[in-house]
C-alpha cells in the first residue's frame, strides 16, 4: 500500500497543472476560440505566482497573482483576436513567445530561490482517516480546485443557459450573432477564463510542484494541455482522464529512470511528448466526424 499510495499521490500532483490548464482551454475552445498561448500564460502564472509567493510568504496570494497574470496575458490575446480580428493561431504563438521572454525577464532574480511555505492542505484534518485518508485528503488546495473546476465546467456547459449559449457561439457564431447573442463578449469571458486557469496551473508548478522558479519550467505542459483538450473531444470529464493519463506517463518514466534499467534517461523523459503524439494520432483516427466546435479558430467580425 505504502509505495502504490506514494506513487498515486505523485501522479495526482503531476496531473493537476495539466488538468487545470486543459479545463480552461476547453472552455475557450468551446466558445470557438483556439488559444495556442497556454504555454506562455502558464509561464507568466508560474513566475508571477512565485515572485508574489516568495515576497509575501503567502502561497494563496501567489496563486491569485498567477491567476491575474494569466488573465492579463489572455486579455492581450483577446484584444488581437476579438478586437482587431487577427489570425488566432498566429496570435497564440505570439502569446507563447512573449510569455517565454517576459517570464524569463521577470524571474531572472528569483532563479535558484526556494519557497519555504507549503500550500495549505485544506482537508488536512481528514488525512489521518484509515485506508484512503492520505490519498484523498492530504493534497493542497490546487488539487481540489482542479476537481472543482471540472465539476463546475461540466455543469456549466451542459446545465446552464449561459453554458449552452457559449457552446452555440462556438458552433456557429453567425447564427448566434443573428439571434442577438453578444458573441464577442462571451468569447472574451471564455478567453479570460482560459487565461485564469492557465495562470493558476503555472502557479501550481512554481508554488507547489517544484517549488521554485526556473526559466521555461513548464517544459511543454501548456502544449500537452492543448493536446488533452483534443483527446477529451472537448468534454470536461474526459479532460480529467486525459490529464491523469499524461500525469501517469510522466511519473511512470521518472520511476523507471529511478530504477536505472540502462535505458537512456533522455528516451524516458521524451515519453510524455511521444505519448502525446501517439494519443493524438489514435484519437484523430478513430473519431468519426469531428467533435470539435464547428467554428473553432474561425475569425468573427460582426458586419451588421
Amino acid at each position: 500500500m505504502g509505495l502504490i499510495e506514494a506513487i498515486l499521490i505523485t501522479v495526482i500532483t503531476a496531473s493537476t497543472p495539466l488538468l487545470i490548464a486543459a479545463i480552461g482551454e476547453l472552455v475557450t475552445e468551446r466558445s470557438g476560440v483556439l488559444n495556442l498561448g497556454v504555454e506562455g500564460m502558464m509561464l507568466m502564472g508560474a513566475v508571477t505566482g512565485f515572485v508574489t509567493g516568495y515576497s509575501t510568504g503567502s502561497v494563496v496570494l501567489g496563486a491569485i497573482a498567477g491567476i491575474v497574470a494569466g488573465m492579463a496575458m489572455a486579455a492581450l490575446f483577446a484584444f488581437l483576436v476579438l478586437g482587431i480580428v487577427v489570425n488566432q493561431v498566429a496570435s497564440g504563438l505570439a502569446l507563447t513567445i512573449l510569455g517565454i521572454g517576459l517570464s524569463g525577464l521577470i524571474g531572472a532574480n528569483y532563479t535558484g530561490l526556494r519557497l519555504e511555505q507549503k500550500p495549505p492542505a485544506i482537508f488536512g484534518a481528514l488525512a489521518d482517516l484509515p485506508y484512503a485518508g492520505k490519498l484523498l485528503f492530504s493534497h493542497d488546495f490546487f488539487v481540489y480546485a482542479a476537481f472543482a473546476l471540472v465539476i463546475l465546467v461540466a455543469w456549466f456547459l451542459t446545465r446552464t443557459r449561459a453554458g449552452l449559449t457559449l457552446r452555440a457561439v462556438g458552433e456557429s457564431h453567425t447564427s448566434a450573432h443573428a439571434l442577438g447573442v453578444p458573441v464577442r463578449r462571451l468569447r472574451l469571458y471564455a478567453i479570460l477564463f482560459g487565461g485564469a486557469c492557465a495562470g493558476l496551473a503555472g502557479a501550481h508548478l512554481s508554488l507547489a510542484y517544484t517549488p521554485f522558479w526556473v526559466t521555461g519550467m513548464t517544459a511543454g505542459r501548456g502544449w500537452i494541455a492543448l493536446a488533452i483538450v483534443v483527446f477529451a473531444s472537448w468534454l470536461p470529464w474526459r479532460a480529467m482522464a486525459g490529464a491523469y493519463l499524461f500525469g501517469g506517463v510522466t511519473i511512470a518514466q521518472l520511476q523507471v529512470q529511478g530504477f536505472g534499467l540502462g535505458i537512456p534517461s533522455q528516451l524516458m523523459s521524451s515519453l510524455p511528448y511521444l505519448a502525446t503524439i501517439v494519443v493524438l494520432v489514435i484519437i484523430s483516427r478513430t473519431r468519426t466526424g469531428s467533435s470539435a466546435p464547428a467554428h473553432l479558430g474561425v475569425p468573427f467580425w460582426p458586419d451588421r
Binding site: L76, A90, L98, I100, G101, A108
Partner: peptide
C-alpha cells in the same frame, strides 16, 4: 538581461500581427 531580447522579439510579433 538577455531575456529582454526575447521580450522585444515577442512584442514585435504582436505588433506585426
Amino acid at each position: 538581461p538577455l531575456d529582454l531580447t526575447k521580450v522585444i522579439q515577442g512584442f514585435l510579433l504582436f505588433a506585426v500581427l
